[in-house]
Design a protein around this nucleic acid. Sequence first.
DNA 1: TGTGGTTAGTTAAACGATTTACCAATCTTG
DNA 2: CAAGATTGGTAAATCGTTTAACTAACCACA
Lengths: 337, 337
Amino acid sequence: MTIKQIAQQAGVSVASVSNVINGNYHKVSAETRKKIEKIISETGYTPNAVARSLATQESKIISMVIPYIGEYFSFNANPYYSELIAEVEKYVRAQDYCLMIRCVDRCSDIVHMLSSWNVDGAIFAGASASEIGDLRNSLKCPSVFIDSYCEKEGVVCVGIDDYRGGYLSARHLLNNGHRKIAFAAPSFGSEGVIYERFRGFTDACREYGVEIGEKDIFEVDAVESNSIVAGNDIALSAEKFTAVGVTSDLTACGIMRGISQCGLSVPKDISVIGFDDLSLCTISSPRLTTISQDIQMKARRAGDLLFTMIREKCELTSNEKIAVKLVERDSVARAEQ
Amino acid sequence: MTIKQIAQQAGVSVASVSNVINGNYHKVSAETRKKIEKIISETGYTPNAVARSLATQESKIISMVIPYIGEYFSFNANPYYSELIAEVEKYVRAQDYCLMIRCVDRCSDIVHMLSSWNVDGAIFAGASASEIGDLRNSLKCPSVFIDSYCEKEGVVCVGIDDYRGGYLSARHLLNNGHRKIAFAAPSFGSEGVIYERFRGFTDACREYGVEIGEKDIFEVDAVESNSIVAGNDIALSAEKFTAVGVTSDLTACGIMRGISQCGLSVPKDISVIGFDDLSLCTISSPRLTTISQDIQMKARRAGDLLFTMIREKCELTSNEKIAVKLVERDSVARAEQ
DNA sequence: TGTGGTTAGTTAAACGATTTACCAATCTTG
DNA sequence: CAAGATTGGTAAATCGTTTAACTAACCACA
């Protein structure tokens, strides 16, 4: 079923049909409009999106680009990503756009696909500042970067207040009397989400006269077995930690398990605080105390900014940081004197 | 950058450029082929997918259609879906196709979008037999249905051996001496994944002379608070259950929490067995004994069948059931005498 | 030498929409 | 009533590809 056939059946030109489809009602009389609409609804005709896209150079497609590392898909390894994708999908669908999803090694892998499909906008998760720099030259469509730190003119980032999150996390442990504190995170450089959480964490510690040194930092990625090993290490460390701050809930759960394996109890012997507030926090045992981030808000702000750029055809520069908060559950206890 | 410009620069016709792009090398001499390829790589030209799709009536797009109920996205509420999506994305990308994702109320919501984008194939998750029936008339592209039970000619289903899973689940409890057994599942009719698991479960019980009656069945959806309530109900029931079989790991975790809340211990007082074998099984406490399904295999088989239909331009009828197996962890113990 | 078969290439018609430019009829208005 | 504006509509170009049909040159062979 094509627009041509509709036009034929209605005895009008394709231009008229196109006009009623696109709501250019001032160009067509009420009478012919009725006639055309009748036939459209009778036949169940829908305009072909591909042809439309070719003609308009737009597509009503938004692409979401997710990093993955080695074997592990971020959104498989870490439920944070699936919650994020779910929220983005919801937003995009509400705008009557389609969502294309793609995992990539390097963000630049995607630029051809984006222009090739006339993609109207892209949302990148977890791109580094340098990747964004490379992207800026090649990328044609409006984009927003979730969980990135980048101050460049013309780039839109949406994230959370990671520094504050790290700070609140440590302060909660300190307020509970802990002084022997470990920090567990994936490897990080001197920028980005994890680095900011680390800065906040150490700054809070310093305020209480506690220094986080190299021996207090445990490097651990999202792979579950690795986080269990980290839990073992923390439990058995000569440092006799009474608490550990972790940069993701998933890892925190693994660490709790690793600690239990060594015969110590959470939170009685060692307190654990996570980050993200995923739904698994209430499933774990003990339920995980954590820093809560509002994933839905993140997706919504990213969507708002993206669609502003698309609709107003403008460039924006933004670095939104959404507030975080402490959610107390059962994995942090007062340190024994 | 268009094919026209490439042709101009190379001093040949667009047809020749098109032929080298598409590997119709017999139609172009080695010499001009070199010339064209040189210019293509110099300019970094990529053919426009939209125009190509319009011309070929294909798109290299696969669509994945996910059900959601009310507020809850399946793949948000249940990590099973995100693992499935991750595997499908991987498969589709390996074939050099794009993946469009869409959550729907009713499967029929998607047919317009599929034809409008010339989508080459679709993967539906969790569609009911009647929905598939409706779809068959309107659907233009090859499709495979994951987790559906449908015997109709020309429909391709890929699932797991749910009956066997239910059977193994109950048998494991029975072999551990349990006789007061509860069954927790979302509401189900007389067909589909949950019903099959139920059949297997009750059949095994019957072999041991145990009847699962209405008072032994607890209806519970994926919402976490509901599963905790179910856990409470099971713990406090006058039936004095010593074990419960659950049709999803996520719900099983909530039920374990609900049981603990009532002061009972898993598995000491009540054993719990899940279904799916998601990664969260190893972070729950106790680690969840469950029926393991191979999600990667499921995605791969679905992909294989789908791409066979796409490439061979043929219709298939299939009802593959992938084997499941019991994975013993710590949430099932022997019943006390 | 005429016929037929390759080979290498071009031209132009699709694909299914949008949109600009144009036209004819009718209405306003001084 | 003539000029101009408005209304309702059409024809045709365009978007960037693929591909069928065609051509011209060359070669082989009876």
